[in-house]
Simulated assay, not measured.
Amino acid sequence: MEEEKIIEENKEEQEKGSEEMDNDNSQEEIKVERKLVIPGETIVSGDDYLPGDYTKKDGDNVVSNRYGLAEVRGRVVKILPISGVYEPRRGNTVIGRVSEINFSGWQIDIGGPWRAFLPLNECPRFINRNNVAEFAGVGDVFNIKVWGVKQGSVDLSLKSRGLGKLEDGRIIKINCHKVPRVIGKEGSMINLIKDKTSTEITVGQNGYVWLKGDIDGTRKAEEAIRLIEKEAASEGLTNKVEEFLG
């Protein structure tokens, strides 16, 4: 029962970002700390801390399971990986390319060893089984959502706002663990790049980035994204990108 209580507290901390209240019930600002850690390294010690993504509890210690940036946000400790392959999670929005077609839907390449499939019933409109290729053919690119993951296979859906086929443009690949830095807080970083380069940009959580615009704009946008990917762990990154974009 104690373990269930800890798990429930952990879930509430991560999903709601709840903060502890002081004695007079005023809300305190959550302190966020980050540091680079390796697997097996103790991040923090004490009963007050709860393990989050890629961490585990070992006695009074919270220990890292991955190489990356350890983030201590309030009571919750988690790892932001900076290396490794993409691991799909329900709710992720990814960019994928149609690799195969059959009567029940489309096989989508989202990178890595995952078998990802978009069934007909997860399209936003009715698709005739005899005309599947009319909706999407091999090579077509989609901004698409992960709605299920099981035993190495991924189920995809287009039934959400903002999803669909990405026409024309081109795709670049970045480290999927650097995607949050490329997007920025509430989309601030990617919007900065869009505005400065006049480029349409869609970033998938699997590390694929779709760019559409004129040659100079897309080139500058890619260079800015590569800069963020390279300098993801450094401070003052927004200022560096602003200076680069001019």
Rank of each mutant, 00 (worst) to 15 (best):
Ile172Arg: 11
Glu87Tyr: 06
Glu186Ser: 11
Lys35Tyr: 03
Val72Ile: 15
Arg219Ala: 13
Val62Met: 05
Gly84Arg: 04
Asp47Gly: 14
Asn143His: 14
Ser104Asp: 12
Ile183Tyr: 02
Ile108Met: 11
Gly187Pro: 06
Ile215Tyr: 11
Thr42Asp: 05
Tyr67His: 13
Thr42Ile: 06
Asp58Leu: 10
Gly40Asp: 06
Val63Met: 14
Lys159Asn: 15
Lys145Cys: 07
Ile38Leu: 15
Glu229Met: 01
Val37Trp: 01
Val146Cys: 09
Tyr86Asp: 00
Gly74Ile: 09
Phe103Tyr: 10
Glu243Trp: 04
Leu211Trp: 01
Lys31Ser: 14
Arg129Asn: 01
Pro39Asn: 05
Val63Leu: 14
Ile38Pro: 00
Val141Ser: 03
Lys240Ser: 05
Tyr208Asp: 00
Pro113Glu: 04
Arg219Asn: 14
Glu122Gly: 03
His177Phe: 13
Glu4Leu: 15
Ala232His: 11
Phe142Ser: 00
Ala133Ser: 15
Thr218Pro: 09
Asn191Val: 10
Val203Pro: 02
Arg226Asn: 14
Asp47Asn: 15
Asn131Tyr: 10
Ile110Gln: 01
Gly236Gln: 04
Pro113Ser: 07
Glu19Gly: 07
Val85Leu: 06
Glu231Met: 11
Val94Cys: 09
Cys176Glu: 10
Glu242Val: 10
Gly84Gln: 05
Pro113Tyr: 06
Gly74Thr: 07
Tyr49Met: 08
Gly169Glu: 01
Ala233Asn: 12
Ile110Trp: 05
Asp47Met: 11
Gly204Gln: 02
Gly137Trp: 04
Thr197Gly: 01
Leu227Ile: 15
Leu166Val: 00
Asn128Gln: 10
Lys240Pro: 00
Arg66His: 12
Lys57Met: 13
Val32Ile: 15
Thr238Gly: 02
Val138Gly: 05
Val132Asp: 03
Ser160Glu: 15
Glu9Ile: 02
